[in-house]
């Protein structure tokens, strides 16, 4: 096998088959892929299913704490988790730039396979295309996921007085990718928080927490997610800056570059809207998970029907937390 991906690998012929068998199918290995049919047939038993799709164009493709492959699995798993849907199956499509070294592709695929295995969600179908040099930036991945909905959640179920929780510190993913892109030396402390959230969602569901709604604050960070939810529920929210967890290094990084941590992408965080009476219990449950020690109650749902998001600042003042400005951080996921 040659050292780099060539256009022939995408032509659909012998080389494509070889690529699929030796790289994708062998890494993702399961009964569906062993058949190598054009479509994989599954049986979905009674219930409602959620389906989601996401494309991943993160630059650079390797960053501290993860890579585009791990991100592609976690991102889609988390979108399903945010609907309280247990991830069941994934698809994976690859658009590869001619000239991409094989070992890079293998590394990404291996990372995807590992994450999928750990989350018990098989990748059962996929596609591969190769485009000429310069027509794609190394590698783009799309994953689509189907999950079984365990509990119906809607923004309309949010009530005034509900509490807003988060499972850990913000801005880690965006900061890690940006730092890697700009060549900042931060070492281990600027790691992406990229991780699958289904296990903690499952835990909260099993403990019968009065969960009203969830959203994973990816692009645009907590600000974007909060504003979207305020809009769709029609209610106003208030967040307390002091209660939003952030690591010291992320905070420094943001101060230095003049970035607002609440606007920056997360890939291992979930915003939970929980009935006030269950908030404390939910917090305890989250904190019992080793990776969620810094879980925190960061805000409340207000009675007013204005769809605004307010921020009580660390200085004791208050202001409106708006939707983040578009150009802040491109190609963050």
């Amino acid at each position: 096998m040659k050292e780099h991906i060539s256009l022939s690998h995408g032509s659909g012929g012998a080389l494509t088959q070889k690529l699929i068998r030796e790289i994708f199918a062998s890494a993702f290995d399961n009964a569906y892929l062993r058949k190598l049919d054009d479509a994989s047939v599954v049986e979905l038993r009674g219930g409602r299913y959620a389906m989601t799709t996401d494309s991943f164009v993160v630059d650079p493709i390797f960053f501290p704490g993860g890579d585009i492959g791990k991100l592609a699995v976690c991102g889609t798993v988390n979108d399903l988790a945010s609907c309280a849907a247990e991830p069941r199956y994934l698809s994976a499509s690859f658009v590869i730039e001619e000239g991409l070294p094989f070992d890079i592709l293998e590394s990404v695929v291996s990372s995807m396979a590992q994450e999928a295995r750990q989350q018990y969600v098989p990748i059962i179908t996929g596609d591969t295309k190769v485009v000429p040099r310069g027509k794609a930036d190394k590698l783009f991945i799309n994953t689509t996921g189907i999950g079984l909905v365990h509990k119906t959640l809607e923004a309309g179920m949010i009530r005034p007085g509900d509490k807003i929780l988060i499972n850990g510190p913000v801005a880690q993913h965006g900061v890690s990718v940006l730092a890697a892109r700009q060549g900042f030396e931060g070492g281990k402390s600027l790691k992406s928080d990229c991780k699958s959230l289904w296990p903690i969602v499952k835990l909260l569901l099993q403990e019968d927490i009065d969960l009203r709604f969830m959203r994973d604050p990816t692009r645009g960070g907590v600000s974007a997610a909060a504003n979207e939810i305020a809009q769709s529920s029609g209610l106003s929210l208030v967040l307390t800056e002091q209660k939003v967890p952030i690591t010291a290094s992320c905070k420094s990084f943001c101060e230095i570059l003049g970035l607002e941590p609440l606007d920056i992408a997360n890939e291992g965080k979930m915003l939970f809207f929980i009935g006030a009476r269950d908030a404390h219990r939910a917090l305890r449950i989250l904190k019992s998970v080793p990776s969620c020690r810094r879980a925190s109650v960061i805000g409340d749902v207000l009675p007013e029907r204005k769809g605004k998001v307010y921020l009580k600042t660390t200085a004791g003042g208050s202001r409106i937390l708006g939707m983040p400005v578009a150009e802040a951080l491109p190609r963050i996921c």
């Binding site: 600042t313 200085a315 004791g316 003042g317 208050s318 202001r319």
Partner: peptide, 12 residues
Amino acid sequence: TAAIRRFGIPAM
């Protein structure tokens, strides 16, 4: 200007 608005000083 940015700091004053960021820290919510007018509200105080």
